[in-house]
Write a protein that binds this DNA or RNA. Structure first.
Length: 313
DNA sequence: ACCCAGGTTGTCA
DNA sequence: TGACAACATGGG
């Protein structure tokens, strides 16, 4: 394809207003690894085999896509929760009795869990261990460029599990996955013969889904929780990563708790939208905006200040 | 040069 | 079960 043929910009109303900062947090804050920032608050991303631009606009978002791509608007409506279903769910969180959560929600008011494709989510988070978000994006883009279908000269869809199962050592090496290459290949070997794996897993309860996902190589409790949350829309799934460990330790006085215990705390304390709560806490912690209760603040104030991980991104 | 990164796995008590 | 190092790679 020589020149990209874009449609005209079109408007998609969203049930709740969205700011440029929220769009950035949602598209580039660790939920997705397939968007890149462009001039003018525009974000260019790949949804399946579609190349799409979006930008915040009054009352919703503006978007455009390449001519000939199918079902772009319906895909975006689902992706951005245009109906506003999550607003009702956020209100069910225990923010009335939880000052930390209340503040975290206010910090990123309107933040949503994007409804991603399971395949894309699984690939992304298989690459996520011991990597920063920016580096995960590089690895995922390399996988697409090396083995995916071309959309434009610069944009590629993600490869299928069937294709990934046939990846050569050289192809995987070119993606700079490190030890994660074995995760991708191992999971590909298990899923290449299950083209309907996502549909099959969607039928499972969330508890069973998490167990099923963890049978895949490279998928432990945290990656499974992320895939369930972002890829399968299970808003009760509560991923515990390094940021959440820090956040819960400092703001909820849960120092020394191990991840599985923290996950249990998250599920019971935050309830059926624990994953949404997690995302507000995650975003607030990364932005250095997490509120620490007085009792904790006073007890830690005497300790020598330790370097906060927020200085890097 | 050294430390860390949206963790998982294998290996020892 | 539970703690702990190893794991590849890149950036600060």
């Amino acid at each position: 394809m020589s020149a990209m043929a874009w449609t005209e910009w079109q408007h998609l109303p969203l049930a709740q207003e969205i700011t440029a900062e929220l769009v950035k947090e949602q598209l580039d804050g660790g939920q997705s690894f397939r968007w890149q920032g462009m001039p003018g608050n525009v974000w260019r991303g790949i949804l399946g085999d579609r190349l799409i631009d979006v930008r915040p606009a009054h009352g919703g978002i503006d978007w455009r896509g390449l001519h000939g791509q199918r079902e772009m608007e319906s895909a975006l409506k689902k992706y951005f929760d245009a109906d506003g279903r999550q607003a009702l769910i956020v209100d069910r969180l225990p923010w009335r009795s939880d000052k930390v959560l209340e503040r975290a929600i206010k910090n990123f008011s309107g933040l949503r869990i994007l409804r991603h494709d399971p395949h894309e989510t699984l690939i992304g988070f298989l690459c996520s261990s011991n990597k920063r978000i920016i580096q995960i994006k590089v690895m995922v883009a390399a996988l697409a460029r090396t083995m995916g279908e071309k959309i434009t000269d610069e944009h590629y869809a993600l490869p299928t599990w069937s294709r990934l199962s046939r990846a050569t050592d050289a192809e995987l090496k070119a993606c700079a996955l490190g030890y994660r290459a074995a995760f991708i290949r191992g999971t590909a070997k298990k899923l290449e013969s299950r083209p309907r794996w996502a549909d099959e897993m969607q039928k499972l309860s969330t508890a069973d889904l998490l167990i099923e996902l963890q049978t895949l190589p490279g998928v432990g409790p945290k990656v499974a929780a992320c895939v369930a949350l972002f890829g399968f829309g299970r808003l009760e799934s509560f991923p515990v990563d390094t940021w959440v460990v820090q956040a819960l330790a400092s703001a909820y006085e849960l120092k020394g708790w191990k991840p599985d215990k923290l996950a249990e705390f998250g599920r019971t304390h935050f309830g059926d939208a624990a994953g949404l709560a997690q995302q507000y806490l995650f975003a607030s912690a990364r932005a250095g905006l997490l509120v620490v209760p007085e009792s904790v603040a006073s007890s830690t104030a005497k300790r020598k200040p330790k370097k906060s991980p927020k200085s890097r991104k």
